[in-house]
């Protein structure tokens, strides 16, 4: 067998094959778009670089489909995270034409396909490879707000705690969070101050602060009253615009601020 080792092989630039689909095989209604992707392969690149790919798509295809077509038909080294492909798992948040979006919820027809589409990794989190960033700082901020129900009083034996539909509705919006980081990594404060908890952590604190079954609202409010807490929010609304789940994040942050001022969550 050949003795090519992984170390030796990795110095080779990955082969790239150009689009091979013959026009006669092209599905009706399809057309070619250009994706300009910010590439970074840590073993090869000193700095990120832009690379463009032509790819044949249908208007109803998602950006994720286009990325897959590139990876599967042109360049296997193109790297991104994805799983469910319909906006539930939160794996494929990235910057598409300068906006944080999920690649699997962004359809080609909703962009301008006559112009190149720019795709790059989320900002504000350490770049690992191509469209992959290090999510640890994001999850660390999440864990710091104690994102779990804290209730010292025992629930009725083998029964649920009761909660009125109105009380349940109070925190409904923030239960929708899928921890994709689109909000946090769109926040200018987070870009310049890596210590700031960021919108997603505050959203997940809100989810418990306003849950009337929880007994530790004050603990979380104290955490968020920190200098790196809610007061750093400059209400630019980037986070609300970026949220693929439509959570009114800025409003949730304002409600946490309000609770800090009045001393009560209601």
């Amino acid at each position: 067998m050949s003795t090519v080792t992984i170390e030796a092989a990795q110095t080779r630039v990955p082969e790239r094959t150009t689009e091979t689909t013959a026009v006669e095989d092209a599905p009706p209604g399809s057309f070619v778009i250009t994706l300009i992707i910010r590439r970074y392969i840590p073993e090869l690149d000193d700095e990120p670089r832009w690379e463009d790919f032509d790819v044949r798509v249908l208007p109803t295809d998602r950006i994720l489909d286009a990325l897959h077509k590139i990876k599967w038909e042109q360049d296997g080294s193109l790297t991104f995270r994805r799983s469910c492909a319909h906006g539930i798992c939160g794996s494929d948040a990235m910057r598409i034409n300068g906006r944080n979006r999920l690649a699997c919820k962004t359809l080609i027809k909703d962009l301008d396909p006559s112009k190149p589409i720019y795709v790059e990794a989320l900002k504000g989190l350490p770049l690992e490879k191509d469209l992959v960033v290090d999510m640890e700082p994001f999850f660390e901020a999440y864990r710091q707000v104690q994102p779990f129900l804290i209730a010292s009083s025992a629930p009725p034996a083998r029964r649920e705690r009761t909660q009125s539909p109105v009380a349940r509705e109070r925190f409904d919006d923030t239960t929708k969070c899928i921890l994709c980081a689109a909000c946090t990594s769109s926040c200018p404060v987070f870009w310049t101050d890596g210590q700031y908890f960021g919108p997603a952590a505050i959203v997940n604190a809100h989810r418990f602060i306003f849950d009337d079954r929880d007994e530790a609202s004050q603990v979380r409010l104290d955490i968020l009253n920190d200098k790196e807490g809610v007061w750093r929010c400059r209400t630019t609304f980037n986070c609300s615009e970026a949220c693929p789940r439509g959570i009114e994040i800025t409003k949730a942050i304002q409600e946490v601020k309000q609770a800090l001022l009045t001393g009560k969550a209601s």
Binding site: I6, A9, Q10, R12, P14, E15, I41, P42, E43, L44, K71, D75, G76, S77, T79, F80, E128, K129, D130, V132
Partner: peptide, 16 residues
């Protein structure tokens, strides 16, 4: 089978 990505870091091509 061909694996195009020859690198070690985040090699999703290999895992596929």
């Amino acid at each position: 089978i061909a694996v195009q990505d020859k690198g070690k870091r985040f090699n999703t091509d290999l895992l596929e």
